[in-house]
Design a binder for these strands. Structure first.
Length: 423
RNA sequence: GGAGGAUUCGCCUAGUGGCCUAGGGCGCACGCUUGGAAAGCGUGUUGGGGGCAACCCCUCGCGGGUUCGAAUCCCGCAUCCUCCGCCA
């Protein structure tokens, strides 16, 4: 949700942002009209209500005919107040509904356009030389040979896009997540294990029930949602609170299972564990002052790149185009690892600056000299199940083994190599 | 699943239809006092919205209702606590 004051004072900025995203520009004028309607109906209600209060104060001390006359007048007024209040409520409801429509206003510098209009900020690391003309084996082939990934039984038990991580595969996932959590803790984040079922208002407050509502699993019997990321729970953590940011940002690292329906991605990444319905993730989440959000975003990206370096995979950083941003994000950077088997880049991390957009919906504020104001929220990935893909493929050896990146070794009992089962 | 009880300002609490314009205590902030501090005294201290302003409106868990008037009465819901049942 945007600040109505911004829409009133600088509607052109909002229009430009909506245009860059390829979304509705007219909604700005609809909002301005709804805001005007709300204010005039509210003023009328308040005028009548004040009159009613003044009148009812005189009733107890009146008597006889005078009292009867007052009661008659008060009864009329009571009906008028009721109508005016209903009108004001309707106008407020209409405004509230419209206010959810515009997406966050993009940060200056975000490229306009859609999925393919990103800007590459940098490319880091060398793509592995896997031998002359040799076709790189893909992560599933490697994973199966290591006895690490079992997608067939995943499908048998739960359907397409489910999998078992077995043996060293399970350990490798935990190694990634443990390294991520340790990195976060060292950087001052508070480690958190979060709920994965949340109430509707929390899911909606984070902005995931807009255009991407089909992505979310809903538990109909209990009217709850399964989260696609711990960002949801961490954003809800301080909902309707006034937080204290005087000692710097509040930083949390959430560990959770993540659930995604992957509706509309039929036929895309169907092999292996690149695109799955359930995975684990360690996510950074930061509450900071609005004016610090741009710097905080760079810091989150910095921690993500530290993790990229730790798993020793070649990657690039992209500045996602406006049309490919989630509704809440004002800017998003992705780190994409090189995927040798497909000669393409694969998203491993994503960090979004949601400015005050989420906090406004969720009611997260801070105290300032001039009252309260909404804080900024940011999030970023520090490790997921998918990273197994990039690690297996980039560290595969000609003999079929996989080299373990140095930083992960302590979490794998010191192992330097993962070797195929039965060799 | 059933039966009771609770939900008031950061915390504790008063409040059974108009005297609530929600009182008191704690905490916190500022001031007085002091050589300095403590104590004491005084002032302030929920949040949101409208208005150029004076000022006004809303906010006693949430949503309805009764009434000229609701923290207070009625209905529904949520959360927490206690007990019972069921499951483990």
């Amino acid at each position: 949700m945007l600040d109505l004051r911004l829409i009133r004072e600088d509607p052109d900025r909002v229009r430009a942002s909506q245009r860059a995203r390829g979304e509705s520009v007219d909604v700005v004028d609809q909002l301005l009209a709804a805001d005007e309607a709300r204010r005039s109906s509210l003023t009328e209600f308040e005028r009548l209500r004040a009159e009613q209060k003044a009148l009812s104060k005189d009733i107890p001390s009146a008597s006889g005919d005078e009292k009867q006359a007052l009661l008659v007048r008060a009864k009329e007024l009571s009906a008028q107040v009721k109508d005016a209040e209903a009108a004001a409520d309707d106008a407020q409801r209409e405004l509230d509904e419209l206010a959810l429509v515009p997406s966050n206003v993009i940060v200056d510098g975000v490229p306009a356009g859609g999925e393919d209009d990103y800007t590459v900020l940098r490319e880091v690391g060398e793509r592995p030389d896997l031998g002359t003309g040799e076709q790189a084996r893909d992560h599933l082939e490697i994973g199966e040979s290591l006895g690490a990934i079992d997608t067939e039984r995943g499908a048998k038990v739960s359907g397409a896009r489910f999998y078992f991580l077995t043996g060293v595969g399970a350990q490798l996932e935990l190694a990634i997540l443990n390294l991520a959590l340790a990195t976060a803790a060292e950087a001052g984040f508070t480690p958190m294990i979060t709920p994965t079922l949340v109430r509707p208002e929390i899911m909606s407050g984070t902005g995931f029930l807009g255009a991407h509502a089909d992505e979310v699993y809903r538990i109909e019997a209990d009217d709850m949602y399964l989260v696609g990321t711990s960002e949801v729970a961490l954003a809800g953590y301080h909902s309707n609170e006034i937080v204290d940011l005087s000692n710097g940002p509040l930083r949390y690292a959430g560990w959770s299972a993540c659930y995604r329906r992957e509706a509309g991605s039929y036929g895309k990444d169907t092999r292996g564990i690149i695109r799955v319905h359930q995975f684990h993730k360690v996510e950074m989440f930061s509450y900071c002052r609005a004016e610090d959000a741009v710097d905080e975003h760079e810091r989150l990206l910095g921690w993500e790149e530290r993790m990229m370096a730790a798993i020793e995979v070649p990657y690039r950083v992209i500045d996602t185009a406006a049309g490919d941003l989630g509704a809440s994000a004002a800017r998003k950077y992705d780190c994409e690892a090189w995927l040798p088997s497909q000669s393409r880049w694969l998203e491993l991390t994503s960090t979004s600056n949601c400015t005050t957009f989420q906090a406004r919906r969720l009611g997260v504020r801070e105290r300032t000299d001039g009252g309260t104001r909404h804080v900024a929220t940011l999030n970023g990935t520090l490790g997921t199940t998918r990273w197994i893909v990039a690690i297996l493929e980039n560290h595969q050896q000609p003999d079929g083994s996989v080299r373990v990146p140095v930083a992960l070794r302590p979490y794998l009992g010191g192992r330097e190599l993962l070797t195929p089962a039965g060799t």
